[in-house]
Amino acid sequence: MTPRSSLLTQSARPLYWILLAAAVWVLLRGHNEPGGGFIGGLLAVAGSSLVAITLDVRAACRLQPLAPLPLALSGVALAVLAGLFGAAAGLPFLTHRWTEVGVSTVMLFDIGVFCTVWGALTGYVYALLDDGEAAP
């Protein structure tokens, strides 16, 4: 493993939160500006990978809302759920719905994409970085 500089170790957590905030920002604005769930997800992966490299995999894992595999699967579930709203209203599956206050199933779907990318790719990164300590 790469030698750990103390500066990086110290700044890993703050950097993670900054990257995560950027990721969420990119995710949320993605419908109107460049960005979206895929790119946001990749940014979040970068943040988690940073922590996993500089500290360790367990720490990175703890900073995520869920472990990688559950995160990825719940992302898919969220996307399916987003589609069910339209289906419940008698429209074809995945027909999106909007409310007056700007909350929409599109956003839910994109969050699903975000979580899937974040979960699945961190799953790989942790598994490959990790020398047999924590399971993804």
Binding site: F38, G75, V76, F93
Partner: peptide, 21 residues
């Protein structure tokens, strides 16, 4: 990605998630 071809995207993220599985 998220609306007009959302079903496609759903399939793709499912592949990504299940590849980890």
């Amino acid at each position: 990605i998220v609306d007009f071809r959302a079903l496609d995207t759903l399939g793709e993220i499912a592949v990504v998630a299940f590849s980890l599985l």
